[in-house]
């Protein structure tokens, strides 16, 4: 456990030692703040809903910028060779890398807390929906991160890592869209709807965190972290 935290700390330090960490956080706050304000004044309702509505899209570009370095940079510079030969299990390193991006995500979300506070000051929003929104954002972000980390582990090039991650997340996002689903036969449409990020995120945003949504996101995270470990770990000896 100590070693996991050591790596997590190292990763977080490198996020915040480079300008990129601050740029990503600023861009995120700017975008989410702008989108919220815009609809806030148009709709004229004391609700934080619009903050969360666009998160799947904003995260799609923000989180891959964080995860694109994770393994790709270690592979490019060769430090992965030192890291993986420490007396530490592959799963621990993968988990540590995930944790550091997760903490980054949590910090980013924490900084948006001014929006619900403001809304609460003016009106009387449904707190349950706001809390569900944050939980949903963490779950959604975690699955984006897991995908980003896996992609980062299969390439040395950060740009490729970024673009591929955005693409895969985008696919997972749109397969639940009715425009797509209408074209598909019912049997497949059901799978598409089930696999889509947006279906589950929208259901959480209604204020109900159901077990199936949590299981869905956790499965996505575990699945991609498992793939990640397969890529970076030494395969079994024959």
């Amino acid at each position: 456990m100590n070693k996991i935290l050591t790596i997590t700390k190292k990763e977080l330090n490198s996020h915040f030692n480079s300008p990129l960490g601050y740029i990503v956080v600023s861009v995120f706050l700017l975008m989410s703040g702008w989108i919220f304000m815009q609809s806030f004044f148009i709709v004229g309702q004391a609700s934080a809903r619009s903050l969360f509505n666009f998160l799947p899209i904003i995260f799609m570009f923000i989180l891959p910028a964080i995860t694109m370095f994770s393994w790709a940079e270690e592979k490019r510079s060769g430090t992965v060779e030192v890291l993986m030969t420490f007396p530490v299990k592959t799963a621990e390193v993968v988990l540590a890398k995930f944790l550091s991006s997760f903490v980054f995500l949590a910090i980013m979300l924490l900084l948006t807390i001014t929006i619900p506070i403001m809304v609460t000051e003016i009106g009387n929003p449904d707190r349950g929906i706001i809390i569900a929104g944050y939980v949903g954002a963490l779950l959604l972000g975690s699955s984006y991160i897991a995908i980003g980390l896996w992609i980062s582990s299969i390439t040395k090039n950060q740009i490729i890592s970024f673009v591929l991650t955005v693409t895969i997340i985008f696919i997972f996002y749109i397969i639940g869209n009715s425009l797509i689903l209408d074209q598909l036969p019912n049997s497949i449409a059901f799978i598409g709807k089930f696999l889509s990020f947006s279906t589950h995120f929208n259901s959480i945003l209604r204020g109900v965190i159901s077990l199936s949504d949590i299981v869905y996101y956790l499965s996505i995270v575990i699945f991609f972290l498992f793939l990640n470990a397969r890529v970076v770990g030494m395969k079994k000896w024959k």
Partner: peptide, 26 residues
């Protein structure tokens, strides 16, 4: 183990790096 070309974490100081490695080595 020292791999070829001595790959190191560039953004750390020597002390920080050795401290990180020390912790990883338990």
């Amino acid at each position: 183990y020292l791999p070829e070309n001595a790959p190191l974490y560039e953004d750390m100081t020597v002390w920080e790096y050795l401290s990180f490695v020390g912790k990883m080595q338990g």
